[in-house]
């Protein structure tokens, strides 16, 4: 008994480590490839030199500054865009009039690539923080809208009928039946919007930025500073993974009934 128990424990630890084996193996292979000279290090720097570059940028204060500014833009943009998307999705989900009024327009706007919007955003909002945050907000709006709308309209109509028949107030009907029923889909939207948030931010930070990870990356690109380019890629990967992790855990907590 004891033996199988500890065996199971080892197995579960191994299963948790399994997703990391490929990234780690790739990094080790990469380091070896550079050290041995299979690839020229001027174009592909070794992981260790990227790390060293990161440490020195961190010490100079540049990396903390840019990460924090990027995070600020990302979060505010996500809050505004995600919030608006949620409100619009909610209104269109519950009201037929609102749906008729907004849905077609939103569906049309949804398919415009964010990049194409840059000149318009610059024209209307200038090149300051507002423009960058707006771009992120636009990016986050649509996934949140679609998932909220879809989540609300696809709540089991039987449950809604039950709620009505049991005399629930409109507020209660929403807070106890419709919203929790739509929550799994809405949280999927949150996860998706978080992904879009980072990708849009890179684009947004090429618009006359003098700070942020996206700026660091494009600036490095201009001078083919590969170490910094790779560093930025890695930072994006970490930030993306981190926000996905938060969203996933949030799902586990909020949807513990599943």
């Amino acid at each position: 008994m004891e033996e199988t128990k500890s065996k199971n424990k080892i197995n579960s630890i191994l299963m948790q480590l399994l997703p990391w084996t490929i990234p780690v193996a790739l990094i080790i292979l990469w380091q070896i490839a550079v050290d041995v000279g299979w690839i020229t290090s001027s174009f592909i720097p070794s992981p260790l030199s990227v790390l060293a570059n990161g440490v020195s940028l961190w010490k100079s204060g540049e990396l903390p500054k840019n990460i924090s500014i990027s995070l600020y833009r990302a979060l505010v943009g996500f809050a505004i865009g995600g919030g608006l998307g949620f409100i619009l999705g909610f209104l269109n989900g519950v009201s037929k009039v609102m749906r008729a009024l907004f849905d077609t327009t939103i569906q049309m706007l949804r398919n415009i690539p964010h990049l194409a919007l840059i000149p318009v955003v610059i024209l209307v909002l200038g090149i300051g923080e507002t423009a960058k945050i707006s771009l992120v907000a636009i990016g986050c709006l649509f996934p949140m809208y679609i998932n909220t709308y879809h989540g609300i309209t696809s709540v089991d109509p039987h449950l809604i009928e039950m709620g009505k028949s049991y005399g629930l107030s409109k507020y209660k009907l929403f807070s106890k039946v419709i919203f929790p029923g739509a929550l799994p889909t809405i949280l999927m939207g949150v996860r998706y919007a978080l992904g879009v948030m980072w990708t849009t931010l890179i684009v947004a930070e090429t618009v006359s930025a003098d700070s942020g990870i996206g700026y660091m990356s494009t600036n490095a690109q201009q001078f083919m500073n590969m170490k910094t380019i790779f560093l930025c890629i890695i930072i994006y990967a970490i930030l993306g993974k981190l926000s996905d992790f938060i969203a996933k855990t949030l799902e586990n907590i909020l949807l513990d009934w599943r």
Partner: peptide, 15 residues
């Protein structure tokens, strides 16, 4: 999340 918000606030200060 709180850490993220604090860092973002620090970023806002800098802009």
């Amino acid at each position: 999340v709180v850490l993220g918000v604090l860092v973002a606030f620090f970023g806002w200060k800098q802009t």
